[in-house]
Amino acid sequence: MNLFRFAGDILHLLSILVLLLKIHATKSCAGISLKTQELYLAVFITRYLDLFWNFHSLYNSVFKVVYIGTTSMIVWYMRRHRNVKLTYDRDHDTFRYLFLVAPCAVLSLLINARYNLFEILWTFSIYLEAVAILPQLVLLQRTKNVDNLTGNYVFLLGLYRAFYILNWVYRFATEPGYSAWLVWISGLIQTGLYLDFFYYYVQAWKQSKKLQLPS
């Protein structure tokens, strides 16, 4: 465990909490992609399936439970809460699950470190996490005017990924024999997806303007 990794995990948690609190406080989920949230839930469930038999550390276990719990709450709010569900932007959140899930499933069957069910599910979760933000980015693009909290949510998520890359660089430099190609390449692709958003987020912040994405 290094400081970059810890910062990454905290930022990840913070991003989810920002989103959850926004929904809870405003009773609105306008601008939030349910597809992305459900994909993240699928990512967490397939990756943290080992929670019950593979104990690594209390730190990891707590984060796993919290990630699954908070993301489930977001999905619950968006699908079931009587007021929140009415604010869901269904007409714009049209990204097809299958476009992301199917390629990730095929890829995880073809490229994995070991051919067994849990390893393949874990690999699937790594691939799926890399692209799960896409429905959210498409929704932001479509609705143009991004409210502050939604913008901060995506920014914090991107920052979390950036810190994970720093963590890998640090580990590569300090841990002999450390390598994780599958995770690195997926992680680089995932972080790359945020670059465009980052550019506009920083521009808006510099000019202290509201974040607006170009068409």
Partner: peptide, 10 residues
């Protein structure tokens, strides 16, 4: 191979 057991990250 370290990659096989490298599930120490979240």
């Amino acid at each position: 191979r370290k990659e096989l057991e490298a599930k120490d990250e979240l």
